[in-house]
């Protein structure tokens, strides 16, 4: 199950952060997302270390936490997507697929003429779409 999805801007500032847990550990998820930015920085600045993920938007598994898996994605405009999931056995293809769908939702949201680039995304439509994508993430693994 996806517990958190975040969009992080150029100054490493959160543009959108939504957690999908009943429990009140939103702050902890904030910390996890924030810490995983270090891994993204590391991967982007030392691309030779990452080898196979070179020149790819999907950054792969980022951050080892015991209860969560954190995946990253870097768009061509250097906006970062971070996914936190509690599933410990996740297929890469599912995550890639998720990010692809999330990316297109993001592109639609920021293409809104009333959206100012670099500001937080407050669109309700975007939030709805994201929650649909998040829900279908669980389903697609089952299928």
């Amino acid at each position: 199950m996806i517990v958190c999805i975040a969009v992080v801007g150029h100054q490493n500032n959160p543009l959108y952060l939504q957690s999908f847990t009943e429990a009140d550990d939103a702050l902890k998820l904030h910390h996890i997302v924030h810490c995983s930015l270090d891994v993204i920085d590391e991967r982007v600045n030392n691309p030779k270390k990452t080898g196979p993920t070179l020149n790819e938007t999907f950054l792969g598994l980022l951050y080892p936490t015991e209860n969560y898996k954190v995946y990253g994605y870097l768009t061509n405009t250097k906006v970062k997507f971070i996914l936190v999931t509690t599933d410990l056995d996740v297929r890469d293809a599912d995550v890639r697929n998720f990010f692809r769908r999330f990316h297109s939702a993001y592109v639609d949201a920021v293409s809104n003429p009333f959206h100012v680039p670099g500001k937080k995304i407050t669109s309700r439509t975007f939030a709805e779409r994201v929650s649909t994508i998040v829900k279908s993430f669980g389903l697609s693994t089952a299928v």
Binding site: V39, E42, K48, K49, T50, G51, P52, G60, L61, L62, Y63, P64, K69
Partner: peptide, 25 residues
């Protein structure tokens, strides 16, 4: 941290990330 591609692929397979090679973690 392993840096050869064969080691890296093993690492990815096992779901290990580079921070796990660091005592700080």
């Amino acid at each position: 941290v392993p840096n050869t591609s064969s080691q890296l692929s093993v690492m990815l397979e096992k779901g290990l990330t580079e921070w796990e090679f660091n005592p700080a973690h």
